[in-house]
Design a protein around this nucleic acid. Structure first.
Lengths: 102, 102
DNA sequence: ATTTGTTTTGACAAAAATAGTCAAATTAAT
DNA sequence: ATTAATTTGACTATTTTTGTCAAAACAAAT
C-alpha cells in the first residue's frame, strides 16, 4: 500500500538526492517537500505533475496515487466504505456522460 | 442516480413543505437549503444529519449519498476513475486496520 | 563529543476557499 | 396582476490552506 509520499520519498532516496536538491529543482520549499513525503500535506495537482516529471514517473499513476490518498482519507472513518465508493463511481460515470455526450 | 440534493428536495415536496419551513425547522438559511437541493453547496456532516432526522431518512444512506456526491465530483474529470477508486478502497481499508487493531 | 549535514517541526502571515446573511430578481401559482 | 416561493448574487466573516522561515531534532562522521 504505497502512498504518494512513499513513492516520492523512495524515488528520491534511490536517486541519492537530499531534500534541498529536490526542493530547489522543483522550486518548492524543502519543509513542504518533507511534509509531502510524510503525508502531512497534500500537494496540488501541479505539484504532483512536477514530481512526476522530475522523477520520471508515470504521471497518471502518480496522480492516481495522490487522488486515492485523498479519497481514502476522506472516508476513512465511515461505515460503508465499499458502498460509498460504488455509488461514487456510478455517479462519476453518469456525470461524465452528461458532460461529454449530452 | 439520485444525488443528496435530489433526495432532500423530493422528500420536502412529498411532504408538501416549502423551503422557509424546512429552513426554520433546521435553523439553516433558506437560500442555503435551496443551494443544497440543487447541489450548489455541500452541507456539513452535521447538516446532513439534521436533514436525516427531520425527514426521517436513514442516516447512513443519506451520508452515503452525500459522501459519494463529493467523491464523484472530485474525480469527475480524471482518466482512471475505476482505478482511482479501487486503490482508494484498498488504502482506506488498510488505514482502518492500522487505526483499529494494532 | 563536537562539527557538519539533513530532516522535521512549529510559528507566523498571506492567500484562498467556504460559510452564513440578506435583499433583490426570478419564477410559479392563484 | 398579486401573492407566494425559489433562486441568485453581493457582501462579510470565518475557517482552511499555503508558503516562508528559523530553530529544533536527528544522524553521520570525524
Amino acid at each position: 500500500m504505497e502512498t504518494f509520499g512513499d513513492i516520492i520519498k523512495n524515488k528520491r532516496e534511490s536517486k541519492g538526492l537530499i531534500l534541498r536538491q529536490v526542493a530547489s529543482a522543483l522550486d518548492i520549499d524543502q519543509a513542504i517537500v518533507s511534509k509531502f513525503e510524510r503525508g502531512e500535506r497534500k500537494p496540488s495537482k501541479e505539484q504532483v505533475e512536477k514530481f512526476a516529471e522530475f522523477y520520471d514517473l508515470d504521471k497518471n499513476k502518480l496522480i492516481t496515487s495522490w487522488l486515492s490518498d485523498q479519497i481514502a482519507n476522506s472516508i476513512l472513518y465511515e461505515e460503508n466504505i465499499g458502498e460509498v465508493l460504488k455509488v461514487a463511481e456510478e455517479k462519476a460515470i453518469y456525470l461524465k456522460t452528461i458532460h461529454d455526450g449530452k
